[in-house]
């Protein structure tokens, strides 16, 4: 008896797992926010931003710790000052990958899709 396969599992990280089943995502990341995420994360990690693709997981692929998250938030605040009103958890909770983070940013700063 075959069982329906579940979507590929993702791991929790200081919060519930993030990546939703394919096809159930919100609109694809706006290029502007994804670019911002890649550049600021690159700055914090000291890596070239070209290496930071959207499917990379913050914990298991990039080994980001909580101090780095704070640094990332500070960097993103320089780009999007409205993030100063948003808590750390509201930015990162449930974001497993860089793509998730870009999605979240899009929601939080209310940029138009396109």
């Amino acid at each position: 008896m075959t069982r329906p396969t579940l979507p590929p599992p993702v791991l929790p990280w200081a919060g519930p797992p993030a990546t939703r089943p394919a096809g159930d995502r919100a609109d694809a990341p706006v290029p502007a926010t994804l670019r911002a995420v890649r550049e600021e994360v690159a700055r914090v990690l000291g890596q070239p931003s070209q290496e930071l693709t959207p499917e990379l997981r913050l914990e298991d692929d990039l080994d980001v710790d909580s101090v780095m998250l704070i640094e990332m938030k500070c960097c993103l605040e320089h780009r999007y000052p409205e993030l100063a009103e948003v808590s750390l958890a509201d930015v990162f909770l449930g974001c497993g990958t860089l793509g998730d983070l870009a999605d979240r940013l899009t929601e939080l700063v209310g940029l138009p899709v396109g």
Partner: peptide
């Protein structure tokens, strides 16, 4: 399920 297996996918939005 998350308490049984941390890799459990999230529920649909």
């Amino acid at each position: 399920l998350r308490r049984l297996d941390p890799a459990t996918p999230r529920p649909p939005r």
